[in-house]
Structures are given as structure tokens and as C-alpha cells.
């Protein structure tokens, strides 16, 4: 089984209209080369699910500037004025979700759950239209799973089976999103042979990763 593909082959896997997860937090731990190639390709009408929309110059923000999304689901867009402009002018639909809820919705999708119950957002406008479920006297919001067609993520180190290791604060959404997409493509800084990563330090098991792109540092 060869998971290693080149960047063009990776971008071929993302079709117009797809829902995509993009890993990273304000661009830290984002798959920058895949993002640049997707900007170049110009794939359109995508739905983005990502923690934030980076900045106009960094990370997933470049795809926003290039108007490749019809809808954005994120916890924070304040660092990218273009996202706010597109939302205000009705060009792009934006759905804001609390960060802890967003990651749990993705985890639910990948981990076989029908959703999660969280107290976050109770009593606010965000909760409007959401089902409230009472468990042992406490109210929770039902938050449903969020799936994607393709996840593009970044890792510090991978073996050729796709076992991933992340340095520092780059794990963020990368780890969980890998479980919830039909196809997960990991851009890796360092690619090693199978057996060269100690199984004790694998953060993302390779079974969640369909394809690898050797990104270099």
C-alpha cells in the first residue's frame, strides 16, 4: 500500500462543492503547501470546516481571499477581515461555532457518535433552534456530528503507513479531523520508514490517514 502521492494528485482529490476540514490554529499546524496548491487550482464552491480563517496572507485565509468557499464553519474569523466582509455582504455563508463544540462535532463524526451534549452556549442566541436535552436535572445542547469529504492536515513527522507525530501546539484540529473525513491527506515535514516512529509516541494512528504528501520543512 503506497500512501505517498504528490501535491497535484492530492489536489485532484478535492472536487468542486466538497466539504473540507483544514487543520491548524491561526495557521500554526496548517498544511501550507496543500493550501497554496488548492489556491492555485481554484477549486470552487467548497464548504470549509476549520477552527478559524487565519489571516488574508496566512493559512486557510488565502482560500477565503480567493473566494473558494460557499460556506464557512469556524469558531473565529476576527483575524481575517475578508471573511467578515464576505459574510456581511452576503457573499459567503458563515456559521460560528464555539471552539470546544466544533472539535466535539468533528470527533462525533469520526468516532461513531450521534453527537454530543454540551452546556456551552445555553441561554444565548447561539442556542436558538438547537435541541435541549435534560440529563439528571442539567440542560445540555445537542450538537450533531460534522463530516467532511476531505481533510487536509499537517504533521511534523510521519512514517509511510501514515502514523503521525506533531510537535508543539500543531496538533490542534489535525488529530481529530483525520478521523472524520472520507479522505485524509497529511502534509508532513519529515517522512520516515515504517517502524521508525516509536509506537508509544504516535498521536494519530495511520489508519486515519489515506494519503501522505511530503512537504518538507
Amino acid at each position: 500500500m503506497n500512501k505517498l502521492i504528490n501535491i497535484e494528485q492530492a489536489i485532484d482529490l478535492i472536487k468542486d462543492g466538497d466539504t473540507i476540514f483544514v487543520g491548524g490554529f491561526l495557521g500554526v499546524g496548517s498544511p501550507h503547501r496543500l493550501i497554496d496548491a488548492l489556491v492555485k487550482r481554484g477549486t470552487k464552491n467548497l464548504i470549509l470546516i476549520c477552527n478559524d480563517t487565519g489571516t488574508p496572507e496566512v493559512g486557510v485565509g488565502k482560500l477565503v481571499v480567493n473566494k473558494q468557499f460557499r460556506k464557512i464553519i469556524a469558531s473565529h474569523i476576527g483575524t481575517n477581515k475578508e471573511t467578515g466582509r464576505q459574510m456581511m455582504e452576503g457573499e459567503t455563508e458563515v456559521e460560528l461555532v464555539p471552539q470546544g463544540t466544533l472539535i466535539e462535532q468533528i470527533r462525533s463524526a469520526g468516532y461513531g457518535l450521534g453527537g454530543v451534549l454540551t452546556p456551552t452556549g445555553l441561554g444565548t442566541e447561539y442556542a436558538k433552534g438547537k435541541q435541549i436535552i435534560n440529563v439528571d436535572g442539567k440542560d445540555y445542547l445537542l450538537e450533531k456530528p460534522l463530516f467532511a469529504d476531505v481533510a487536509i492536515i499537517a504533521a511534523t513527522k510521519a512514517d509511510k503507513f501514515g502514523n503521525l507525530f506533531y510537535h508543539g501546539a500543531t496538533r490542534n484540529f489535525n488529530n481529530i479531523t483525520s478521523s472524520a473525513a472520507k479522505i485524509t491527506i497529511a502534509e508532513v515535514e519529515e517522512l520516515v520508514e515504517i517502524g521508525d516512529i516509536d509506537p508509544d509516541i504516535v498521536h494519530t494512528p495511520g489508519i486515519f490517514v489515506e494519503y501522505l504528501v511530503n512537504g518538507g520543512k
Binding site: 478559524d52 469556524a74 469558531s75 473565529h76 474569523i77 476576527g78 483575524t79 467578515g84 459574510m87 456581511m88 458563515v94 460560528l96 464555539p98 471552539q99 470546544g100 463544540t101 454540551t118 452546556p119 456551552t120 452556549g121 445555553l122 444565548t124 447561539y126
Partner: peptide, 17 residues
């Protein structure tokens, strides 16, 4: 509303938890 909509980030979870 209508002016500044940066999003809640982690604030709703922090305030709740």
C-alpha cells in the same frame, strides 16, 4: 451585530466550564 463579528472562539466554553 452588523459591526464586528469575530466569533466566540473558545470564550463560550471557557465561560461555561
Amino acid at each position: 451585530p452588523g459591526k464586528m463579528v469575530p466569533g466566540m472562539g473558545g470564550a463560550m466554553d471557557l465561560l461555561t466550564g
